[in-house]
Design a protein around this nucleic acid. Sequence first.
DNA 1: GATGAAAAGATCATGAT
DNA 2: ATCATGATCTTTTCATC
Lengths: 155, 155
Amino acid sequence: MNGELDSTDRAILRELQNDARLPNKDLAERVGVAPSTALERVRGLRRRGLITAFRAEVDTRALGRSLQALLALRVRPHTSQLVDPLRTFVLGLPETIALFHVAGPEDFLVHVAVPDADHLHRMILERILVRPEIIHLETTLIYRTERQPIQLPVD
Amino acid sequence: MNGELDSTDRAILRELQNDARLPNKDLAERVGVAPSTALERVRGLRRRGLITAFRAEVDTRALGRSLQALLALRVRPHTSQLVDPLRTFVLGLPETIALFHVAGPEDFLVHVAVPDADHLHRMILERILVRPEIIHLETTLIYRTERQPIQLPVD
DNA sequence: GATGAAAAGATCATGAT
DNA sequence: ATCATGATCTTTTCATC
């Protein structure tokens, strides 16, 4: 119930970030505890909110979305009355992978994956820029994205 | 063996992105096929590269990394001789969540999660800016990150 | 916490449609 | 391709240390 992670917890987090479907028996062996202990630890990590979900990772390229971009949006006036619906709208776009609310001159960065540049262009013109609260949009093409699959505490 | 996704494949991708540990029996029921079919479909999706991994998702806040930022890096000269080792270095930092190689005036965007602003500051000064090939760094604080957990093809 | 054994349940290979 | 069925393996619980 406390917030500390011992080396077993950390090892479990490492293994399950690497393979969420690792059988409990194998997990137990790799982290050096009994299967029942591993099971209890994993439950604890979920209960304490350290593990938030188990998800399949898909390849957006294989889904026909080979081009990624970051869209920097400026929204004015920057009131929750305008910002909240925009946030919902952006997250509802099937092209959206992630949405960052940021400090600085821009308000949002939207990470999108699309089939091609034409799709991106049409999407921006026909679905994004038609919204009058967006007073500025800057597109940055992404050549390559690399995610670090394993997150651990930093000391 | 081909690259098309039918509605069953799409439904499976949806379910497994939502819960990678959904038992095959339940998966089969939800997508409306027999368990053995569901199993074969999932294998096919893995083999064809649509599903790249099953991963546990961890909460960086719960790991004691409550602050996120994007670091825009400019590297000069922009040669693979300098860029490749830098890429490896950045991905090796425990603070790094993702690395974007981008077009435009900046070369990289590094998504990091750190315990606090002081850690971020020290990290930038002591570990990033000491590298002479980095001729410019701009830090953007992230107030909030929202990922869309489910990716599907866009039409 | 860890262990071992037994019950419940999931996975997987096979053969049929 | 899809399905139904047993054989096999895993997970889970519980009693115990």
